[in-house]
Amino acid sequence: MAEADDRITRLEETVAHQGRIIDELSDQLTEQWRVVEQTRAKLDRLTERFMAIEEQSGEAPPNTRPPHY
């Protein structure tokens, strides 16, 4: 019986350890998702700023050769 009790104890310890690891991984995934969302929001803001600057600049100057050519 002691052998079965030891085996059950080891299995319970393994399950507890795996549960703790899963919780840690879940927390890390949640944090990474938050960072991704922040980065996406920053990219959206930068894209809007770039488009506004591009609209303000008007047409691009013609591509001509410099006078020394």
Rank of each mutant, 00 (worst) to 15 (best):
M1E: 15
M1G: 15
A2V: 13
A2M: 07
E3S: 12
A4M: 01
D5P: 00
D6I: 13
R7A: 12
R7V: 07
R7I: 06
T9M: 09
T9D: 14
T9H: 14
T9Y: 06
L11V: 06
E13P: 05
E13Q: 13
V15F: 11
V15C: 01
V15I: 12
V15N: 10
A16D: 11
A16V: 03
H17T: 15
H17N: 14
H17R: 15
Q18K: 13
G19M: 08
R20P: 06
R20S: 13
I21S: 10
I22K: 10
D23S: 13
E24F: 01
D27L: 12
L29A: 13
T30S: 14
E31G: 02
E31A: 11
Q32Y: 07
W33D: 15
W33M: 15
W33A: 09
R34H: 07
V35L: 15
V35R: 12
V36N: 04
V36A: 02
E37H: 00
Q38V: 01
Q38A: 10
T39G: 04
R40F: 04
R40L: 12
R40K: 09
A41P: 01
K42H: 12
K42W: 11
L43P: 00
R45P: 04
R45T: 11
R45C: 05
L46E: 11
L46T: 11
T47R: 05
T47C: 04
T47K: 11
T47G: 07
T47D: 04
E48V: 06
E48G: 06
R49T: 07
R49Y: 07
F50L: 13
F50C: 05
F50R: 10
M51G: 03
M51Q: 13
A52I: 02
A52C: 09
A52N: 03
I53Q: 14
I53W: 09
I53S: 15
E54A: 14
E55N: 05
Q56C: 08
S57Q: 06
S57I: 00
S57Y: 06
A60V: 00
A60R: 06
A60L: 08
A60H: 06
P61K: 01
P61N: 04
N63L: 00
N63F: 04
N63C: 11
N63D: 03
N63A: 07
T64Q: 10
T64M: 02
T64K: 08
P66S: 10
P67S: 03
P67L: 06
P67M: 02
Y69V: 09
Y69D: 12
